Amino acid sequence: MAYRVQGVVVREKDAPATIETVIVPDPGPGEAVVDIITSGVCHTDLHYQQGGISDDFPFLLGHEATGRVSAVGEGVTEIAVGDRVILNWRAVCGQCRACAKGQPQYCFNTHNATQKMTLEDGTELSAALGIGAFIEKTLVAAGQCTKIDEESDAAAVGLLGCGVMAGIGAAINTGEVKRGESVAVIGCGGVGTAAIAGAQLAGATTIIAVDIDDAKLEQAKRFGATHTVNSKNEDPVAAIQALTGGFGADVVIDAVGRPETYKQAFYARDLAGRVVLVGVPTPEMQLELPLLDVFGRGGSLKSSWYGDCLPSRDFAMLIDQYKLGRLDLDGFVTERVGLGDVEASFAKMGDGTVLRSVVEL
């Protein structure tokens, strides 16, 4: 029996996000239906609305979510009805060349549900990041569900489903920040602030937050920044070098994803340092760097995919750190809103006045 539920849909590029009736099918083999509890309003959802991800409209928005499994399909053994879960967009296949090399965090063939959710007239919906969580119930591949405990605040831990995990993972997994190292993070939105929290968790002793907004820089201190740089008022490369003995940071994380900020990251790192790109560029952006500088500065230039995380490993570990008081996930939840508030939350995101709005159902 299919389910008729309410979900947030955007029908065409730059159209408003509206609440629509969505038909969710019974789960097929390897699939699960999940009752959504919370879903963070992530910048990626706004990118979908703006046509920056693809033109596969209409989209069912939302992906940074917690929920409770309400039905499972044939062959599903890793989760059961009643389980409380975080949804993820890295359902490891176990068979691709990355998995075969023992690197499932890079799985190149992650699973989504085979069936499609639809509008009442039968129009198939594209679920954001294969999840579609601004909805009362959603259909996902069972591997997209990571079981969690019952005690933690769903709104807080659900943010591990995307943005917070991307930032923390950019520091810990991709950047491999070590105890005593220096880290600079360019861009202090949700992902950048999470990278700062990740650097602190990893034991960095100098953590430099860079942004053009003083309020964001002040907020970054709460999550572990030891120094701040307003790049509207001073050259961030020179400032980062000055704060690291004239050398540059061991790791510089670009959480903006623009050519200008990437160049800042490139030149603000120490010799043999690491640059991590976790901010998402748009398709038209181009980067030019002198190849001799790329060679001469050594080190590594890395891109971070979802914080290079393995949900089955990282979610539980980070929730434990949260429960121990070492990771302030609660601090990322700026406001709690309803399904009908998604469009307003997008506007606040553009204003830079929230870390995360979280939809509660």
Rank of each mutant, 00 (worst) to 15 (best):
1 M>V: 11
3 Y>P: 00
9 V>P: 02
11 R>P: 00
19 I>R: 13
27 P>Q: 11
32 A>C: 05
43 H>D: 06
44 T>S: 09
50 Q>Y: 09
61 L>G: 14
62 G>T: 13
70 S>D: 08
71 A>F: 02
71 A>M: 07
75 G>A: 08
78 E>H: 14
101 K>P: 08
101 K>Y: 09
105 Q>M: 12
106 Y>E: 11
108 F>P: 01
124 E>M: 11
127 A>L: 02
127 A>W: 00
131 I>H: 02
135 I>G: 02
136 E>R: 04
142 A>W: 05
143 G>F: 06
144 Q>L: 04
146 T>H: 04
146 T>D: 02
155 A>W: 01
162 C>P: 04
166 A>N: 10
170 A>V: 01
177 V>E: 10
177 V>W: 10
183 V>E: 06
187 G>S: 07
202 A>F: 06
203 G>N: 08
205 T>C: 11
207 I>K: 01
207 I>Q: 01
218 E>W: 08
224 G>P: 01
233 N>M: 15
234 E>P: 01
237 V>N: 03
245 G>V: 07
248 G>M: 08
251 V>L: 08
251 V>N: 02
254 D>K: 10
258 R>S: 14
265 A>W: 04
268 A>T: 14
271 L>Q: 14
275 V>D: 00
287 L>I: 08
307 G>M: 04
309 C>G: 13
309 C>A: 15
312 S>W: 00
320 D>Y: 01
322 Y>A: 09
332 F>D: 11
339 L>T: 12
343 E>I: 02
350 G>P: 01
359 V>R: 04
361 L>C: 00
